[in-house]
Design a protein around this nucleic acid. Sequence first.
DNA 1: ACCAGTGACTTGCAAAATGCAAGCGACTTA
DNA 2: TAAGTCGCTTGCATTTTGCAAGTCACTGGT
Lengths: 139, 139
Amino acid sequence: MERTWVDMSKSLVSHREDTFRSRCSIARSLELVGDKWTLLIIRDLLWHGKHTFQDLQSSDEHIPSNILSQRLKKLVDWGLVQREAYQHRPVRYAYHLTKAGQALEPALLQIMGWGHAYLDGGRYDPKSGKSVSAKRRSS
Amino acid sequence: MERTWVDMSKSLVSHREDTFRSRCSIARSLELVGDKWTLLIIRDLLWHGKHTFQDLQSSDEHIPSNILSQRLKKLVDWGLVQREAYQHRPVRYAYHLTKAGQALEPALLQIMGWGHAYLDGGRYDPKSGKSVSAKRRSS
DNA sequence: ACCAGTGACTTGCAAAATGCAAGCGACTTA
DNA sequence: TAAGTCGCTTGCATTTTGCAAGTCACTGGT
């Protein structure tokens, strides 16, 4: 974690071979999103119109602020997210997904689908912007 | 971790509401597979014909044996994986995905696709059983 | 000028998870 | 009897998490 705040728009390719455990794309992806929080941040940026630190912090799962801070840095560092001041005096920041970040949507949808089917969770429809609560299964 | 070894074929529904951080299917799924190792185990069970403890331990990413042990227990516990002795004298065990476990394949494929596109990793084709190394990008 | 308030973080510290090496128990084969 | 294999478990050091509190820059009200 010695990378500084300011250096953004790092390309994903700059982190390479040496960084990863193996050549497997799944293993590599997991190094970035293989934890309990990262994909939730991406979910909020992607679907729930949350773009400020506060917004992101206030989701149902209540991510601790230090973790949110770390994760955002990592995501910016890896080029999935861009951070920019959307106003000065006082300066306020907004986070947005880059193309690479948005490209995780299909994966997110699949994971959601699985959770809906097997863990009885809700489903969110990006088209309609509505989420459907799971109905109790009959058995 | 007080559940015993023997109790298998637990349904996923037995873990419920109280267990989860929120109703979100993604958050719920991440409680199960939201770490650096679990999906790799599923990858190996699903595509690479690895079914014994040793097989799973010997993948490229070198999961520590205690973690593998924990994860397998959790997966069995949640009904994604079944454990059975495939031979006695000496007793040897095999792990196999249940329906619920297999249902993660589309998610896995999407994650792999993303890693292939953005992290320069390899891609595995379940149809052909072959994996393709990523080619260096031109830029 | 003073003070409460807000947004975006950081810091300190306790608790939990991870990683590594070594060990163990049942069994087999030489 | 000795050595080897498989499927784990144990101990312990390191790392990551989680929670609460604090900081810093600024604003808006009195």
